[in-house]
Design a binder for these strands. Structure first.
Lengths: 219, 219
DNA sequence: TAGATTGTTAATCGATTAACAATC
DNA sequence: TAGATTGTTAATCGATTAACAATC
């Protein structure tokens, strides 16, 4: 049977935010925090924070609140940040290279093992200590190495076929930067970074007020 | 009084998706489409599509459906993509440069006018036809030019202060790539691209099943 | 006209908030 | 112990889905 997530997307999207704030609090030397205080900091209700955390277990203590470091560690586990991951990057364009050069990844357990591209001009170029390989080496690489995560940073026209290739090769998760909604089999995780969608949302928000003034006037 | 959005975030987040699919359909020569067909394509219910679209007006026709090009144009207007925008980039690191080099932006009306960075090593470097300027030129630039959108691609430690500086300089919208939740006054739009949050969500999803097997076992 | 499909109202479902007993 | 704050159940709110009359 298809695996059905037990935690709503709304909650999952907040998890990295909790992790970020807890790390900051820990860094600032805060030892304990109540759902009330954390809520004020994060612009959430205390109730929501307690509900969210209790999807995974009771990590707090009545009368005391939450131990910052402990809760941070629990959320790191929940997010899978206590594991190590083998990562490959498909596409050595601007985005692929920016991801490869992102300093925090290796520290968090995401280790870039290889980077592939079609363009002959980029062949053999050194990207953050990894040499760009031609795409026709991809199948061979997948056969020879265990790859956990593939960063998909290819033009949209090739995104789905490349994703299929990655899935056949045993990749467990795809971090997709192509402006496309991929169709993937059950069991392969995906998360999208749709940059142009994000810019369009920004553009919507900065124009919303004017938009409705116009729409209302034309009624 | 503070401006309260009339359209829920859930709807706004779907708008760029509609736009993307309608552009593809138009390109494929599809002239008309029903909410039913569009829903199958986008994995949404026909009902939801009609509800979403009717937040902004009745763009369909009973018995016919929606005219693809017309609906695409209406959504482009809603998203503010029929305007031209003056954009500056703060931070000429990997992300700032990747954004600057993104080919689609100018075509969609987002025109990069200037790029700033603190690092002396990057001064005067040409990024996609624009010379990197030192940060102390930013205030002067903002005083002399009308800037609609700032791309904020600086280290998190400087994100809030830089954002404040941009707001003082009259910037109307911030596209934020720093892993920080900015505090901004009413009337300044923001949208975040939290790359590490996105990766953490991917990591969560690929581990969720195992996670709950462990959590359940420990009960 | 008859058939199709929208726009819109009503019903349902799920997420958020409130309340409070449990307990540290 | 008394005070504080969680974990959890119940109430509310909002988003999604279903239904159907309007109409092209």
């Amino acid at each position: 049977m298809a695996y059905k997530s037990r935690v709503s997307d709304a909650v999952v999207r907040r998890l990295p935010m909790y992790y970020r704030h807890l790390r900051e609090l820990e860094k600032a030397g805060v030892v304990r925090i109540s759902s009330q205080e954390l809520g004020e900091r994060m612009n959430l209700t205390a109730s929501q924070i307690r509900q969210d955390i209790n999807c995974f277990g009771g990590f707090g203590q009545q009368g005391y609140g939450y131990h910052v470091t402990n809760l941070k560690e629990r959320i790191a586990e929940i997010l899978g940040l206590t594991h190590q991951y083998h990562v490959i990057i498909i596409g050595a364009g601007n985005i692929g290279r920016a991801v490869a050069n992102y300093p925090g990844f290796a520290k968090e357990g995401f280790h870039i093992q290889a980077i592939f591209d079609v363009s002959p001009a980029l062949m053999g170029i050194d990207v953050h200590g990894t040499l760009v390989q031609p795409m026709d080496k991809l199948d061979g690489w997948l056969a020879a190495h265990q790859v956990d995560i593939a960063v998909l940073a290819v033009p949209s026209a090739h995104a789905q076929t490349t994703a299929d290739q990655l899935v056949r090769g045993g990749v467990r998760a795809i971090w997709n930067f192509a402006p496309v909604d991929l169709a993937l089999p059950e069991g392969v995780a995906v998360n999208n970074v749709h940059l142009s969608d994000s810019l369009h949302i920004l553009s919507y928000r900065m124009n919303e007020k004017t938009l409705f003034e116009t729409l209302d006037a034309n009624k």
